[in-house]
């Protein structure tokens, strides 16, 4: 998984250009130079070469560290961190619930802080350390919050659970878990449709009161 240049696209799949793409290419510096030599450009268009050139330039290199593993990636600037984690790194523990930052299922830690990975482009976390649910346990030893969610049944279907747990850990780290009311308020960005909220609050209170390092 480490240092993997992952993308399931291949050169032969790049198809002929569309109007919007052509407009973009005309505006780009590289293509302005090429445009000064019209004949090759026409040939390039016929061969689909300009699209191939664009395919190279529409990706950017990205170095990130996910769960302690360094990755050198090549990503489209428009790819969200969520889709990058799930589709390129096969870290599917981070969940897609709404793609609009409205449900919290995609919550991960970036340099220790909770964020919605669906509202974060991959390129925005260049050089940063990402922790997903897969990176929370230490080997076989579950994080205290994972243990508490198990003990208090802080979930049913389990789909919002990774986001809830990442948020819950951050909630304590931020100092926002000092009362049941405060926990409920600061956990309200993570929707649980199965309705495990009281159990989630119980789990967070147990970890908070247990005084373990989170």
């Amino acid at each position: 998984m480490a240092s993997k240049n992952s993308s399931n696209e291949s050169e032969k799949d790049v198809k002929i250009l569309d109007g919007t793409r052509r407009d973009f290419l005309k505006q780009s510096t590289l293509l302005t130079a090429i445009a000064l030599t019209p004949a090759p450009l026409v040939r390039a268009a016929e061969n689909g070469w300009d699209e191939k050139i664009a395919a190279v330039y529409e990706k950017v290199p990205l170095n990130i560290e996910v769960n302690g593993v360094k990755h050198q990636l090549s990503v489209e600037p428009r790819a969200t961190l969520l889709d990058l984690l799930r589709e390129q790194l096969d870290l599917t523990g981070t969940k897609k619930g709404c793609d609009h930052g409205q449900c919290g299922a995609c919550t991960v830690h970036v340099d220790g802080h909770r964020i919605n990975s669906c509202l974060t482009l991959g390129v925005m976390v260049s050089g940063k350390k990402i922790t997903t649910i897969e990176g929370l346990a230490k080997g076989d030893q579950l994080h205290p919050m994972q243990e508490a969610f198990l003990k208090h049944d802080g979930f049913q279907c389990g789909y919002c659970t990774p986001g809830q747990i990442m948020s819950a850990v951050a909630c304590i780290r931020e100092g926002h878990a000092n009362s049941e009311t405060e926990i409920r308020e600061y956990m309200s960005g993570n929707i649980c449709r199965c309705g495990a909220y009281p159990n989630i609050v119980n789990a967070i209170q147990e970890v908070k009161d247990g005084g373990q390092t989170v």
Partner: peptide, 12 residues
């Protein structure tokens, strides 16, 4: 505890 709980809290 849920028999599938471990998988659900670890992202598995």
């Amino acid at each position: 505890k849920r028999i599938d709980g471990h998988l659900k809290v670890t992202g598995g």
